[in-house]
Design a protein around this nucleic acid. Structure first.
Lengths: 343, 343
DNA sequence: GCTCCTTGTGTGACCGGTCACATTCATGCG
DNA sequence: CGCATGAATGTGACCGGTCACACAAGGAGC
């Protein structure tokens, strides 16, 4: 209750010890739930803790024991839906485990800048979660010193981080495959693809899944159109595609890109889905409310973030509740933007 | 270079001191740029630092000196555009100042839950930035203990936090006023309003600005429709408004809400802007690419985040670069979704 | 009765830095 | 020449916890 008033500098365990008439070590035992403390003593200590408003200093704990109970998320972006959702998932899980969450943004993909940022993040102590969906993130994952515990959120298990480190992923390849199959099954001769910037030199998982579906169907394989992350990139790509009357189906690397494509098609006077079908990726919250509403593939980013934390938590504490990977299955959501090709 | 190999536990200043043949205090002086160190000594120490790969422990620094060089952002949400952008601004500014950024989400607006979360955030040391645009945030701001440095990001300067604490804000009132005036100037008899959940018992700043514009114009003042934060809430509100043929102009508390309203109007067969004009709030990245593209008011959330950090930074270090409040002016962006009423 | 183990508690060192003060040596100046 | 002054460096305590170990009291086993 701290009726006594002025709590200048917050009480330390020695203050509590003095108030309870025990040694500081006994106080430490009480706050750590050590078994061999006489109940009456424990009671007294707890009373003192309550009265003095004692709160154990996270800093001192970290210094003395090495346990930091903190994770830092390294990411190139915090506003895009997928990234923000992963972050949210990490935060949820971390909060449940009483971990602090730090965030560190990779502003530039420049090698040196990334390395510096990784260093800063590592200095914060605790573990790292690196979102490696883009070049900056991939570089960051590579730059993490070997002794720092880290979990990567990667695009695909086919491109594992350099060393033997844990990572989580959504099955983007499968998701892209599904979406492409859907469009083909509607009768489209082929499906064009507007890509997000690739995280690797090689083709991305999404591109791979798309290509595989085309191949299996024996459909022509057009060159992917390079987009960016946002609607502006989609718009630019869409303008090119809109000019080609042969284009009847477009798969986009994410929903923002799809939005830009939708807009470009509208401006070009090509109705969706009457003339052209469009599908997105991620199922962002607004996609269901667009006109036409967007066919897309839903990915469980929040769950991905939770898994990433769980994994890291297991590495940091040997109380390794390494929950079996509940890799969620991507789910195709069919809406108005996809339909049969014009006859 | 650390050619010697195995850096087991990271080097401490005493290790560096031993390697350089000086005392640990001298090492401390070097890393802190203290003037009275002989250049030749400094040189030697720096060489040792480099060789051992020494990095000063943030934890030890925090414990010994009290300076934490960290801020924690308390927010009810991380995915909505406005919130995410504020966070991004904070992070940018913090990174530039070599501060670590923590994030802590208020999952529930429940009094006790909020208090617990605030405590956890305060324990992390450093300062707090509370985004108080919603009930949970407002409660959090109230719950911050007096001795903890905090800056609030509030809806309006007219409702200051309880005590005498610094805060930043966007001029939401002015922004809503502008947007409403715009719609009225097009010839609409009045403007309906779909509100975001209010942060206070009293009417929000946005609601206030809207109302004032109506009043000055002598227009009828319809009851605001209560929305939520996302498109789903806008959709529900839009369905009600669509039924009323008298409704020709709708202002929405944010762009997501506007998206839902747009969709509802479309479903009801009421063309925008032919029959109904719609305006949003925030200028989210996708708003420019909607069909019809959305008239909205752009607010500089990123700048707001930067200001919040700058202010907090000033409080934390007396090197108070309390940059003069560069409160950005909200900017009306007129696009396709607003036009004259049907004649 | 003595050792031995268990339970409950206290002591000192330590984590990796900072801070206040002491010390040494070379100067400047009366 | 003696002493105050300042530059350059070292020493010990401290921040608020934890850890390893010592120690006293009480009961079981011989």
């Amino acid at each position: 209750m701290n009726v006594t008033g002025h709590t200048r500098s917050p009480a330390s365990i020695r203050d509590v010890a003095a108030a309870a008439g025990v040694s500081y070590q006994t106080v430490s035992r009480v706050i750590n739930g050590h078994p061999s403390v006489k109940p009456s003593t424990r009671e007294r200590v707890l009373a003192a803790i309550d009265e003095l408003g004692f709160r154990r200093s996270a800093t001192a704990l970290a210094l003395a024991s090495g346990r930091t109970r903190a994770v830092t998320v390294l990411t190139a972006n915090t506003t895009h839906y997928g990234y923000a959702s992963i972050l949210q998932g990490v935060e949820e899980a971390a909060r449940a485990a009483s971990y602090a969450v730090g965030i560190s943004v990779l502003e530039s993909a420049d090698e040196a800048a990334v390395a510096a940022e990784v260093q800063r993040a590592a200095d914060a102590g605790g573990g790292l979660i690196v979102i490696a969906y883009d070049p900056a993130g991939v570089r960051a994952l590579d730059a993490v010193p070997a002794e720092v515990p880290v979990v990567g959120v990667v695009e695909t298990p086919a491109s594992p981080p350099g060393e033997n480190r844990p990572w989580v992923w959504t099955d983007d390849r499968e998701a892209a495959y599904e979406a492409t199959r859907h469009l083909l099954s509607l009768g489209h001769e082929t499906v064009h693809y507007v890509a997000i910037p690739s995280s690797t030199r090689r083709t991305s998982a999404r591109t791979g899944g798309w290509r595989q579906a085309l191949k299996e169907a024996g459909a022509p394989q057009p060159r992917p159109v390079q987009g960016s992350w946002g609607p502006a990139g989609g718009h630019a790509a869409g303008r090119k595609l809109a000019k080609d009357p042969a284009v009847t189906a477009v798969l986009c690397g994410n929903d923002d890109l799809a939005l830009g494509v939708l807009r470009a098609l509208h401006e070009a006077g090509r109705p969706v889905p009457g003339e052209v079908s469009v599908a997105g990726f991620d199922d962002a919250p607004h996609s269901a409310y667009l006109t036409p509403s967007l066919t897309t593939v839903r990915l469980d980013f929040t769950g991905l973030g939770r898994s990433a934390f769980a994994l890291l938590h297991g590495v940091l504490e040997e109380s390794a509740q390494v929950a079996p990977h509940p890799v969620s299955v991507p789910e195709l959501v069919v809406r108005e933007s996809s339909g049969p090709p014009p006859s």
